[in-house]
């Protein structure tokens, strides 16, 4: 597989720490960060590290994986609505597909996304799991 080192490296802070954005004008939180608010189109936006806590907004169990993700099948992907309001697409981890429900509380953890083959780089990023009791 092609090494895309700059491309994967570029997002490290956003992926490791779930850094998104918030519009200072309308208050909308969004992930990822961008220069124009997706709700009000305002351009006064700031980066924000999200809490990582949220709830499952929708989910699906993948049985036919794209190249690079075969070793995880079956795995659950989800749209997670963060406490801050932003939606994030991500894999769920440490969960059986039958346990997942819309509205289930989840929290962000750092996990492997995939590897570029046995001698390639390892790509890490956010996933979500059922929230632990503290």
């Amino acid at each position: 597989m092609a090494l895309q080192l700059p491309r994967e490296w570029r997002w490290r802070q956003e992926r490791y720490r779930l850094i998104g954005g918030r519009c200072r004008r309308c208050g909308q939180a969004f992930f990822p960060h961008r220069e124009i608010c997706p709700r009000c189109l305002g351009e006064d936006v700031a980066k924000e590290q999200f809490s990582g806590r949220g709830r499952v907004y929708s989910y699906a169990t993948v049985y036919k994986a794209p190249v690079g993700f075969e070793e995880y099948v079956p795995y659950v992907v989800a749209l997670v609505q963060l406490e801050e309001g932003a939606l994030v697409a991500a894999q769920l981890t440490d969960v059986d597909p039958t346990e997942v429900q819309i509205g289930m509380p989840v929290e962000c953890v750092l996990r492997r996304w995939r590897t570029n083959g046995p001698d390639g780089n390892i790509i890490y990023g956010y996933k979500f799991r059922p929230r632990l009791e503290s």
């Binding site: 989910y59 794209p66 795995y75 992907v77 989800a78 749209l79 697409a89 996304w113």
Partner: peptide, 13 residues
């Protein structure tokens, strides 16, 4: 796509 969402999975969501 980069984090394992196949196109089918996106529609499944």
């Amino acid at each position: 796509a980069g984090l394992g969402l196949s196109f089918v999975a996106i529609n499944a969501l």
